[in-house]
């Protein structure tokens, strides 16, 4: 209600950060802005972007999903196993893998909503379980040797645009549609704002949580398929620690960790920032260890900014 100009700046702040960061890397290394590198970045962020859509829903309802990395891994392994060892066709293998991702999400929903375990512990538990399952299923070694056509998902091009980028854009459009146009999208904001007020307004809060975690599992599963196609081999460590990057993207995109506030379009900016940050640091020969430090600081800054605003609003 105060100043609308200020609000617009606040809304778009994350995009300004993106532009600033982009310029810094562009000046530091001209290679960064080459079209081949930009497409590389786009391809790299595709997996991250797809997974972050589900996580956006989860964080909107004031939840968290730490199992995303393990779902990505397991879907990699399951998809590869089905295609290589079980004689499944490409399409059915993909569909079964996506179903697996979604079912893990449903399981998370069951643990959180029906049993009442806190989201952080429930998804921590499933993270560990499915990490282990992926190792067992793969025997700890990579699985490869897929149908040539399978490569299209992660490596193909439609005209000049990489297929994974198209998938990501479609997913963001779908995510944005769910949040803005579907009735359950409204429920996500409501539940994140106040579970009790939502319940008293007739929202079935438990069912909403199931849906959100199932969607998170589904999007993570799709991210896993894209990754599998890109690397063309299932690694039992494929999605290790991925949930960290995904959560960072979403929080950086301004989705409040306490739930109820956030926009899909800003999450896109969050994803792109992490994408160029990772890529730019590689180009600048920043060591992997140093990259971890930078990402950790970025996460703390993003959450810190949100918390400070909250604090100021209440006092």
């Amino acid at each position: 209600m105060k100043s609308t100009a200020l609000n617009i700046i606040k809304e778009k702040a994350i995009w300004m950060v993106f532009v600033a960061l982009f310029l810094v890397f562009a000046f530091a290394n001209p290679l960064f802005v080459s079209s081949s590198n930009l497409f590389t970045i786009a391809r790299q962020v595709a997996v991250l972007g797809i997974a972050s859509i589900g996580m956006t829903f989860v964080i909107l309802i004031a939840g968290i999903d730490l199992s995303v990395g393990s779902i990505i891994t397991l879907v990699n392994v399951v998809g590869a196993y089905l295609m290589v060892n079980s004689g499944f066709g490409m399409v059915s293998a993909v569909l079964v893998s996506l179903l697996v991702g979604m079912l893990i999400g449903v399981l998370n929903g069951f643990l959180i909503s029906t049993i009442g375990i806190s989201a952080i512990i429930a998804t921590f538990a499933t993270q560990t379980v499915f990490k282990g399952l992926a190792y067992i299923l793969s025997g700890g070694t990579p699985i490869y040797g897929f149908d040539e056509r399978f490569k299209i998902i992660g490596q193909g091009y439609l005209g000049p645009v990489p297929v994974p980028v198209i998938i990501m854009i479609a997913c963001f459009a779908l995510g944005s549609f769910i949040l803005n146009k579907s009735y359950f999208g409204r429920y996500f904001y409501a539940v994140g704002g106040s579970e009790e007020a939502s319940r008293l307004s007739g929202i079935l809060v438990g069912r909403t949580k199931y849906l959100v975690y199932a969607l998170s599992g589904l999007f993570a599963g799709l991210a896993g398929i894209v990754m599998l196609s890109r690397t063309n081999s299932a690694q039992p460590t494929a999605g290790l620690g991925y949930e960290f990057d995904v959560i960072t993207c979403v929080v950086l995109g301004g989705v409040s960790i306490t739930g109820g506030y956030g926009k899909m379009s800003n999450v896109v900016a969050g994803v792109l920032i992490i994408g160029i940050l990772t890529n730019g640091m590689v180009l600048m020969n920043v060591s992997t260890y140093m990259q971890l430090i930078v990402k950790g600081i970025v996460l703390a800054l993003a959450v810190g900014f949100d918390s400070l605003q909250k604090k100021r609003a209440t006092t």
Binding site: S182, Y183, F184, R186, Y187, Y189, A190, G192, G193, S194, E196, A197, S198, L200, S201, G202, I203, G260, Y261
Partner: peptide, 26 residues
């Protein structure tokens, strides 16, 4: 705490109990 969804707009608050009814599909 229980009555209004404070972080949600007036429009969405009023429609909250009937969203399913006023949706086609979802």
């Amino acid at each position: 705490r229980h009555g209004a969804l404070l972080g949600v707009s007036i429009k969405n608050n009023i429609n909250m109990p009937i969203y399913k009814r006023i949706s086609r599909g979802s």
